[in-house]
Simulated scan of single mutants.
Amino acid sequence: MAIQQVREYFRKWGRENDIMEFPVSSATVELAARALGVEPARIAKTLALRNNGEGALLIVTAGDVKIDAKKFKSEFGFKPRMLNEKETLFYTGHPVGGVCPFALAQEIPVYLDISLKRFATVFPACGSSNSAIELTPDELAEYARCQGWVDVAKAQI
């Protein structure tokens, strides 16, 4: 199970017991916010995208934003295109609904969107559709081995 790999991944920081598992689904921003009792914006959602047509990259954003195609293209030089479920599982090792930037199956770049910086803590998934961990944005950057902070999101309408 992917959550066990994530738990093992967090062991090197002594954070493996900080992973929360819920008796209900946290597979979407809304479900995760409800399970945690927090505003949806504080859910750190991990998006799996094609990396310039081949390979993959991850963008982690706040739960209340979506990728802005123009900003993304300006930052990366190509249009954003989501991976399908099979590709997401191949590159991340995590099923859709539990995708996170930790304990990845493949070496792929991870970027964090600045939308996360407005919160003291955020809640990314941990490899399953009923898990999360509370991290500061700086901890998230460290644990995700972040390639850098980007500005590629806009408010959802």
Rank of each mutant, 00 (worst) to 15 (best):
P109G: 00
T88G: 09
T121W: 07
D113S: 12
L89S: 05
K86L: 11
H94C: 06
L104K: 12
E107V: 05
T121P: 02
P80W: 11
F90G: 02
G127E: 00
R118E: 14
Y111G: 01
E107I: 11
T121K: 15
K86D: 10
A120G: 09
T88N: 11
T121D: 01
V99M: 07
A120W: 09
E85G: 13
E87V: 10
T121N: 14
V122M: 13
P124N: 11
F119P: 04
N84S: 10
E107C: 08
N130Q: 10
T88Q: 00
P80F: 13
E87P: 05
T88L: 03
S131T: 14
L83P: 07
A132F: 01
R81L: 15
S129K: 14
L116R: 10
S131P: 03
T121A: 06
G127R: 00
T121Q: 14
K86R: 15
L116S: 03
K79N: 11
T121E: 10
I108W: 08
Y91V: 09
C126G: 12
G93L: 13
G97V: 08
K117W: 06
C126H: 04
T92G: 02
R118K: 15
A132Y: 01
E134V: 01
P101Y: 10
C100A: 13
F78A: 05
I114W: 12
R81W: 04
G97P: 01
A103W: 06
Q106T: 04
F119T: 03
L83N: 07
V96M: 11
I108P: 07
R81G: 12
L112C: 02
F123K: 06
G127F: 05
E107D: 15
Y111D: 00
A105E: 10
P95A: 14
C126M: 14
A120H: 15
S131H: 02
Y91F: 11
Y91H: 10
K86V: 12
S129M: 14
I108A: 08
S128A: 14
F90V: 00
L135V: 05
N84E: 13
G98A: 03
A125V: 01
F90K: 14
F90Q: 12
I108D: 01
A120P: 07
P101H: 03
F90P: 01
C100D: 04
A103Q: 03
Y111V: 00
A120M: 13
Y91Q: 00
A120Q: 15
K117V: 03
Y91C: 05
S128R: 08
P124D: 10
I114H: 12
L89H: 08
E87N: 13
F78W: 15
P109H: 03
E85N: 10
L116I: 06
Y111C: 00
E134G: 06
A132E: 05
T92K: 01
S131M: 04
F90E: 13
P101F: 09
K79L: 14
I133V: 05
T92W: 09
V122E: 03
G93E: 03
E134K: 15
E85F: 13
G93K: 08
G93A: 11
G127C: 07
T88D: 06
P109F: 06
I114F: 12
S131A: 11
Y111M: 08
S128C: 12
C126W: 02
S115E: 01
S115R: 09
C126Q: 04
P101D: 04
F119C: 05
S128F: 09
K117G: 07
Y91L: 03
V122Y: 05
P101S: 04
A103L: 06
I108E: 05
S128P: 06
L112A: 02
V110H: 10
S128Q: 02
C100L: 05
